[in-house]
Amino acid sequence: MLLTLNSFLILGAVLFCIGLFGALSKRNAVSVLMGIEIMLNAVNITLVAFASSSTGTAHGARLTGQIFAIFIITVAAAEAAVALAMIIAIYRRRNSVDVSEINMMKW
């Protein structure tokens, strides 16, 4: 049997780490954002897997993970919109989306 909770959790973990690698190692801001989207999807998979394996009996207890996933999708959409708007604004000002050149986060 492959369809144990563990399989989904390991899949989520692997996806998360791949996304993390992308977010940490890419110069292109859009690429960094794509890495973050992968991480968010990995988390969603984990949450939904937990929800499906839940044995709770209270009202809605077995769907809490899915509700969380819905909220994450909502927030991720908002985040993507804002982040991409920022990328475009930065590109307009500096003619580049290379995050290695953006080093304003000090002092």
Partner: peptide
């Protein structure tokens, strides 16, 4: 970044593999 990602992945997978409750118990109802 690759090393960190690999390390984290290994740590999480190792933890899941070690945790029999997750590996064999409730997970069967998925």
């Amino acid at each position: 970044a690759a090393l960190i990602a690999l390390g984290l992945c290994a740590a999480i997978v190792f933890s899941f593999a070690q945790n029999s409750a997750i590996a064999n118990g409730a997970g069967n109802a998925v």
